[in-house]
């Protein structure tokens, strides 16, 4: 891992933090906040690739755990991991890694559709695979019920996957990072 990789990881962790300043939109009825922050997770994978993207998100979570109030709404500390949405947070680095892995596989032909698909698979499927079972276990509700409840997040997350795809493709054109790595 080169100095450049470390700098990319650190700065992207800071980007994920900075995206937390957008006020969360609370979905009516379900009461779940939709934040630009999980968009940062998708972007980390889409722009930095699997390894660096996953590590950037892991670094961000380490700072949160240590007590930096970086999550949207100024939350932080170990408590956020022990709360009901803790599983989703644990899933963040894995999701970023999965998105990065998919994006790297299709890098040469990356267009909006492929980027969107990568973000849906990694950012929604993988993320929920961590978040939903945790809710089911910790709140002792049946997995199916937890899953039904989580469906409320899906529309917002689809929008985010779309935004992440647009941003990823645009940034690739302006400043390709993944390519820079494979050619080095």
């Amino acid at each position: 891992m080169s100095t450049r990789d470390i700098v990319h990881i650190a700065l992207f962790a800071a980007i994920v933090a900075a995206l937390g300043v957008f006020p969360p939109i609370i979905l009516p009825l379900v009461g779940v906040p939709i934040t630009a922050q999980s968009l940062g997770v998708m972007l980390a994978g889409s722009v930095l690739g699997a390894r660096r993207g996953g590590l950037a998100v892991l670094l961000f979570l380490a700072l949160v755990a240590a007590g930096a109030p970086l999550l949207a709404g100024g939350r932080g500390g170990f408590g956020v991991f022990l709360g009901p949405s803790g599983g989703f947070l644990i899933g963040w680095p894995v999701a970023a890694f999965a998105i990065g892995w998919l994006v790297e596989r299709t890098w040469q032909r990356l267009d909006l559709g492929r980027a969107f698909l990568a973000n849906v698979l990694g950012g929604i499927l993988v993320m929920y695979a961590f978040g939903v079972p945790w809710i089911a276990v910790a709140a002792e509700i049946p997995l199916a019920t937890a899953f039904t409840g989580a469906l409320g997040f899906v529309p917002g997350d689809l929008v985010k996957a779309g935004i992440a795809a647009v941003v990823a493709v645009t940034v690739k054109r302006a400043y390709p990072i993944i390519e820079a790595k494979t050619s080095a």
Binding site: I6, V7, I9, A10, L11, A13, A14, I15, A17, A18, V21, L55, L59, F60, A62, L63, A68, L70
Partner: peptide
């Protein structure tokens, strides 16, 4: 350590 301190340093800047 470098990654941690860089991130901490740049968060206020990126805000």
């Amino acid at each position: 350590s470098l990654a941690l301190s860089l991130a901490l340093r740049f968060i206020p800047l990126l805000y």
